[in-house]
Design a protein around this nucleic acid. Structure first.
Length: 548
RNA sequence: GCGCCCAUAGCUCAAUUGGAUAGAGCGUUUGACUACGAAUCAAAAGGUUAGAGGUUCAACUCCUCUUGGGCGCGCCA
């Protein structure tokens, strides 16, 4: 929270200065300088402002520094010009000690805001068709979506996690038929299984269950039975992955459920678009005029045979989201759906919302490799690696951490053999080890009677301790970067860096020593480390065990 | 053919959205446990950020082109 504080104060001081020079709404940034620079924060305002007012950056910097030293003497020890005109700030140690106190008193609430009423956010993710178990690619979407939601919740946003269930459409008919054929085969009928139907064993499992239940074939709703089993599997796999949804939204609800007038939500949203002139009839079909909002062609909503397309449902679904009061929609889609972004963006604007209301996060697909050979990932052939298999092999924590190590838009190669080996080499253990080490010290410290709760934190004055406290405070900065970029992957990098700093501190500064006052202070410091490590791992949905 | 994404150390990836000498893990080389956990630390090696131009005080980051890879272009979902 230090950086935010300083930034706000600098914005006030420098903003006023810029205004005097005739520049309104001057924007600059406060950054962490590179490691070789001895300073806590770097400000680039002088370079940017000098350009605007056609002056020398170093002259501008000198004037700003005077103002900083005058108005921020409680925070800043030293301010100096460096390089092309950076203003480097050195913080007073008291600022760091105060922040440490804040972490210790706020604990898991550190960096959180009680309520942030700016937005009511829906994060929709996974949303895999209920035609088979989740595969590894869904795992990536699940990890990103769930962690992003955790970050947004921590920041005080009213956040809802939703799974959109595509339980309507052709693939459902194929699914039902797949189970029916397996059922008949198990009953002894010598009939072939169609090559384009779902091949997986889970289809046979459902068929077996139906036979065991002894129902007459005429009484069986094969679609319903298959979806029931598959959903149970999906839900259980997600639970093992520490992902729980606030809501499961069935496409059937908007496609089949009718109101008093006998209309579905899909009917009504199409009528709405027609009335607004955003949909039109042509060639016997109903079209969405998505080119009006930047799509490269118009799209069919209702086929000439009278059946709605998937898009029609999706329009109604997004309309429904808005009707539920959401002001910000986040959709996580696999990159193979990117062609769909333009039309759904158009649809959001037709519904009267700005383009920015919807944020589609495309995550690149995971390509699987086993023994150097690419593994195909088709649900229909049955040759896929499920999320469950990977969790069973490498563990939930390592798996989530691995997925969150990468930015969503970078392609990711997942080597199954490598993943197995990583059980002791994965960076997640490096981070978790910090918590284990701290707790080991806590256990050891229990036998001491000279420890005081009111430790004098100002004794924490080595360089290692200073660097460590600064990094702890940067937890808040990481939160805001994740918020700004709508991606939680910055937390893995942050935690690895924090762990690195902690392990260095551990080697250099012994916590339990003959010096009671210093021991007490350092125990407080590592208590804060545990708070931040736990909070950070919690953002990722990863555990922080006390023993490993 | 058109469109979207990507290309960074031997490998897998970061880089605070335009900042200073581009960082981690794995792998390689060398060293450190008779005090809190060696799942650790210290040190070394490893880069023309695919290539070429351009914008800028400042470019891995923005623009143009080239090359290479992934994905998408249906009255499928």
């Amino acid at each position: 929270m230090i950086k935010q504080q300083i930034t706000e104060k600098l914005e006030e001081i420098i903003g006023k200065y810029a205004k005097e020079k005739g520049i309104e709404n001057f924007v600059f940034s406060v950054e962490e300088p590179p490691k070789n620079i001895d300073a806590d924060f770097a400000v680039n305002a002088a370079m940017l402002l000098a350009k605007r007012i056609k002056s020398n950056p170093r002259i501008v910097a000198a004037e700003i520094i005077d103002l900083i030293l005058r108005d921020l003497s409680g925070f800043v020890d030293k301010a100096e010009i460096a390089g092309a005109g950076f203003i480097n700030l050195h913080l007073k140690n008291e600022v760091l000690f105060n922040e440490l106190e804040k972490i210790l008193s706020a604990k898991d609430k550190y960096g959180s805001k009680e309520s942030n009423n700016k937005e009511k956010i829906m994060v929709e993710f996974v949303s895999a068709n209920p035609t088979g178990p989740l595969h590894i690619g869904h795992g990536r979407g699940a990890a990103i979506g769930d962690s992003l939601s955790r970050v947004l919740k921590h920041l005080g946003y009213d956040t809802t996690k939703e799974y959109y269930l595509n339980d309507v459409g052709n693939q459902m008919l194929v699914l039902a038929e797949s189970v029916r054929v397996r059922y008949l085969q198990l009953k002894g009928d010598d009939i072939p299984f169609p090559a384009d139907h779902y091949q997986g064993d889970y289809i046979k499992d459902t068929a077996k269950r139906l036979i065991a239940e002894g129902k007459n074939i005429d009484e069986i709703d094969f679609k319903k039975e298959a979806v029931k089993d598959i959903l149970a599997t999906i839900e259980s796999d997600l639970k093992d992955f520490a992902v729980e949804f606030d809501n499961w939204f069935s496409e059937g609800k908007i496609a089949f459920d009718k109101d008093a007038d006998g209309k579905t939500e899909v009917d009504k949203s199409c009528e709405y678009l027609l009335s607004k002139g955003d949909a039109y009839a042509q060639d016997g079909a109903l079209w969405l005029a998505s080119t009006k909002f930047g799509d490269d062609k118009d799209r069919v909503l209702k086929r000439s045979d009278g059946r709605y397309t998937y898009l029609a449902s999706d329009v109604a679904y997004h309309k429904n989201k808005f009707e539920r009061g959401f002001t910000k929609l986040v959709n996580l889609w696999g990159a193979d759906h990117h062609g769909y972004v333009a039309r759904i963006n158009a649809c959001v604007q037709m519904l009267g919302f700005s383009k920015e209301t919807l944020k589609v996060i495309l995550y690149q697909l995971v390509s699987l490799v086993r023994n150097g050979q690419p593994v195909a990932m088709s649900t229909r052939t049955g040759e896929f690696i499920t999320l469950k298999e990977v969790i069973d092999e490498v563990g939930k924590d390592a798996c989530r951490f691995f997925f969150l190590l990468r930015a969503p838009d970078s392609q990711l190669e997942f080597d199954l053999e490598l993943a197995k080996k990583q059980s002791s080499e994965n960076p997640v253990f490096y981070v978790q080890y910090v918590n284990a080490r701290c707790n080991s010290i806590f256990r050891e410290s229990k036998s001491r009677t000279d420890i005081t709760e009111n430790a004098d934190l100002s004794l924490l004055n080595t360089n290692e301790e200073r660097v460590l406290i600064k990094k702890l405070a940067a937890f808040c900065d990481t939160l805001s970067v994740c918020e700004k970029t709508m991606s939680p992957h910055h937390f893995t990098a942050y935690l690895i860096e924090l762990a690195d700093i902690y392990h260095k501190f551990y080697e250099k500064c012994r916590v339990l020593s003959d010096d009671s006052a210093l021991t007490s202070a350092r125990l407080k410091l590592i208590e804060a480390v545990c708070v931040i490590i736990k909070n950070g791992l919690d953002m990722l949905g990863v555990c922080a065990p006390e023993k490993m």
